[in-house]
Design a binder for these strands. Sequence first.
DNA 1: CCAAGGCAGTCTCTTTTCGAGACCGACGCG
DNA 2: CGCGTCGGTCTCGAAAAGAGACTGCCTTGG
Lengths: 157, 157
Amino acid sequence: MRYEQLADLPCSITRPLVVLGDRWTLLILKEAFAGVRRFNAFQGNLGIPRSRLQDRLGRLVDHGILVRRQADEGEHPEYRLTSKGHDLYPILMAIRDWGDTHMAPDGPPVRYRHRDCAGEARVALACDCCGEGMTAHDVVPEAGPGLVAHLGADLRE
Amino acid sequence: MRYEQLADLPCSITRPLVVLGDRWTLLILKEAFAGVRRFNAFQGNLGIPRSRLQDRLGRLVDHGILVRRQADEGEHPEYRLTSKGHDLYPILMAIRDWGDTHMAPDGPPVRYRHRDCAGEARVALACDCCGEGMTAHDVVPEAGPGLVAHLGADLRE
DNA sequence: CCAAGGCAGTCTCTTTTCGAGACCGACGCG
DNA sequence: CGCGTCGGTCTCGAAAAGAGACTGCCTTGG
């Protein structure tokens, strides 16, 4: 059980990764963003074993990233992104950006175009104050309120 | 072997995920960005089994994301990010952003501050043409050169 | 009414991967 | 020498993943 309890660490990279970090989860979400809603569509597009898909969809629903909606009784259920799930889009776009740069020798297989515009979607890391672009070198980590709360909780134990 | 050959699909999200999509890989990279270089430091910080770490580091080296440098003979080896590895930073920051928003009830445990500035690092999805901010709804996928090349290769088979 | 087919799930069985912890050799130091 | 540290390997039991058959429900068409 060691791995699961990484989620208790006060780190906003580690915690999501415990949910998203496995073979299939982000691929399923990629499909969801592409408009896929049905069990068999996920299964067929990805080639994921059915029991695995069942498990992963359930987990994503548990985490409030997808909702399972069965319109009418006897209707086929649909899996849709919640707004929490929708917020994952920048992660996928950051991955795509890296993929286009480093794993697409023939150029991007897909362009993610801005609707009604000549441009394409890009992720950028920038300062929310001065707006300047940033890289890892410009970043200085510093304790935040969540860490203080976490340490406080430790003391209370 | 079905899973590994997802890497052949012409999709710049799928291809990186085949490399990065597992329990530990992104956590290891997170540590690397935090300045960790030594085998035992990765192992201790993450609690990853030693044999697993060995395997993952080797894989990252094979993919040109890390380099293993052994300064002098008999010196302890170091694992450092290559520039390709360095380019993964926005992915981690996008994950962190989501983590701060949805998995940090007490506020961000760590602030990623802009050096010599009051601000913090943020990832943003924007149009590279008009500069406007974008969400998944504003994105229209469209075939790119990599897809054409891929289809051409298929025909040649 | 019956047969066929699609859909969402479930179950079973085999293979692969993971994890814990011991073990090893090289080096460093008193 | 004895002891500790570091990177790395090995073994073995446990957990997860994969393939594929099977079920139950509903629709459609004859």
